[in-house]
């Protein structure tokens, strides 16, 4: 439920699911940067093939990826039209009424669309194949260097995992409070702006108060179980780098170097 609430994680056992979260996080970042290098249609062709390969190895149904694009569909459309009409590089290839469409515009627009599709596909695949807690663990490991300069990486990671643990609980509580206030005549849907603000206040204040109480109880429970922020702790969940992670890393490096090289040409 925790994971489904996030709307992203889909349980499974594909190669992508089994890759180390550190690799996936860094890999995503590298690819996101690579996408912005202009390596021409060849470059985007390679990236597209890589993306298809990644999705294929993830057991995520194509429908899910399409669903992720839905919210920004109109944005893409808007951007496309905007760019087509305003960019004036290259030569004119089409005339319609007062609008002139340039070849440069077409290329740029296509690039933008491809970039957005790639970004969404890769990000969705990452979150769909990695449990939020594994993501946190991966981030915690990657942030280790920051620990050396005094950044409380472990405490931040602990905060994130507790927050994740409580999201479903807080959502349930929100529902409960809404029902209780609705039983006292609050309408969360209809009403003037003033009414709506009143409604939200009757929801937010109890939520905050209960959240603070929870925080205090939790702190007491953690301290009673010998939790000391900053102290050394062993870990139940560990990450282990496997052969497949190395192979994936190599593929990633090759592709991104290749694209970089192509973009210089």
């Amino acid at each position: 439920m925790n994971d489904i609430i996030f709307g992203q994680y889909l349980p499974g056992n594909s190669i992508m699911h089994r890759l180390d979260p550190r690799l996936k996080i860094v890999g995503l970042l590298v690819l996101l940067i690579t996408i912005f290098f202009d390596a021409g249609f060849l470059g985007y062709g390679i990236l597209a093939l890589l993306a298809i390969g990644i999705v294929a190895c993830s057991s995520i149904p194509l429908k899910r990826i399409m669903k992720a694009m839905k919210p920004i569909f109109f944005m893409i459309l808007f951007l496309a039209v905007f760019n087509l009409l305003l960019i004036q590089t290259g030569h004119v290839i089409f005339r319609f009424w007062i609008f002139k469409i340039y070849s440069g515009a077409v290329t740029q627009t296509v690039y933008i669309i491809i970039r957005l599709i790639l970004i969404i596909t890769l990000t969705t695949t990452l979150t769909a194949t990695t449990k939020p807690l594994d993501l946190t663990l991966g981030l915690e490991h990657l942030m280790k260097p920051l620990h050396k300069i005094g950044f409380p990486t472990h405490e931040v990671a602990m905060m994130i995992s507790i927050a994740l643990r409580f999201i479903p609980t807080l959502l349930e509580e929100t529902q409960r409070i809404m029902k209780a206030q609705a039983s006292r005549g609050v309408d969360f849907q209809e009403g003037s702006l003033k009414d709506k603000i009143g409604a939200i206040i009757s929801l937010i204040i109890p939520l905050f108060i209960s959240a603070f109480q929870r925080a205090e109880d939790l702190a007491n429970a953690m301290e009673s179980r010998n939790y000391i922020p900053g102290a050394l702790r062993t870990r139940y969940h560990q990450l282990s780098w496997k052969g497949r992670d190395t192979i994936a890393a190599l593929i990633l490096c090759t592709v991104s170097m290749g694209i970089f090289a192509l973009s210089l040409l």
């Binding site: 509580e173 409960r176 029902k179 609705a182 039983s183 009757s202 109890p206």
Partner: peptide
């Protein structure tokens, strides 16, 4: 109807604000 039928949930003290 919500006025006629008053519903009190568990731990109603949490609805005070």
């Amino acid at each position: 109807l919500r006025k006629k039928a008053g519903l009190v949930f568990q731990f109603p003290e949490y609805q005070l604000f």
